[in-house]
């Protein structure tokens, strides 16, 4: 693609689970500064692909390179931030303040056997400020609304100043009203701070609005290109991916 040094380069990735192909021969390059939306129906392997990128699943067949390094020997995980589906990733009764949660985003950067410094605390305050959650820093995370919690998780991912931010259906459990705001914030991160974003979503409406690149996944890669090319696709092309008549839904939750 347009950049000779892509942040992520996947080559012929195939993943089998219990004798079934979950991912088939995926090849994709994600250039620096991109805002890539990955869409696909349930069970299309979106989460499996993300787990590969985060090193949570070992590569069976094919190759993944992160920042030019083979993922099998990749060590600089603090260059990658991750925001998961809020709903199933933590228990809301957990006794931790917003501050403590965001500080935990620096765990890897501070390193084993070392303690956080005053600098680290300042970083936490700054990033909470930037997502508009500073005033909640001493509240327990469970007391906040879904949208507020998701902002805290974004802050946790951002506090280590990653170059790449991976988001897995981040708006699940966020009320419709705040979803737009949330995507505006992402767009901002991409444009102002030049963070490369990879967003997995089932919300195709968002894809055509905000992202710069689109990948359609259903076991294999059905489409990969710029958003303009994606928008030029006809509806029947999309339904061939989803396997049935698909409606382009805009921000409906």
């Amino acid at each position: 693609m347009e950049n000779s040094n892509p942040i992520i380069k996947i080559d012929h990735l195939t993943y089998r689970y219990e004798k079934e192909n979950v991912l088939e021969d995926i090849s994709i390059e994600i250039p620096k500064g991109a805002f890539l939306g990955i869409v696909g129906p349930n069970g299309s392997g979106k989460s499996t692909l993300l787990k590969h990128l985060l090193g949570l699943i070992k590569v069976q067949q094919g190759e993944i390179r992160l920042f030019g390094t083979d993922i099998r020997s990749f060590k600089e995980w603090d260059r990658i931030g991750f925001v998961s589906q809020k709903a199933n990733s933590f228990n809301t009764g957990f006794p931790a303040t917003v501050f403590e949660v965001v500080l935990s985003g620096l765990t890897r950067k501070i390193g084993l056997f070392r303690f956080g410094s005053r600098e680290d605390r300042k970083k936490v305050h700054a990033v909470l400020e930037s997502v508009g959650m500073r005033e909640f820093e001493n509240r327990n995370i469970g007391e906040l609304s879904g949208g507020q919690q998701q902002r805290v998780f974004i802050a946790r991912a951002l506090v280590s100043e990653p170059e790449l931010l991976i988001l897995d259906e981040p708006t699940v459990g966020v009320d419709a009203q705040n979803v737009n705001q949330f995507y505006d914030m992402l767009e901002n991160l991409n444009k102002e701070l030049h963070i490369t974003l990879v967003l997995v979503t089932h919300d195709i409406g968002v894809i055509s609005d905000k992202v710069t690149h689109v990948a359609c996944l259903n076991k294999n890669l059905h489409f990969h290109g710029s958003t303009m090319e994606f928008n030029a696709l006809k509806e029947q092309d999309l339904s061939s991916i989803y396997g049935h008549g698909v409606q382009v839904i805009t921000h409906q939750h």
Binding site: W77, D78, S84, S89, F90, L103, S104, T107, R108, L112
Partner: peptide, 23 residues
């Protein structure tokens, strides 16, 4: 004391802990 921040992250969000490279 030494493993506090790792234990905290592991307790709060195990997937995130593993994704960020905590052993």
């Amino acid at each position: 004391i030494v493993l506090y921040k790792e234990l905290f992250l592991l307790s709060f969000d195990e997937e995130h802990a593993r994704a960020s490279g905590v052993p």
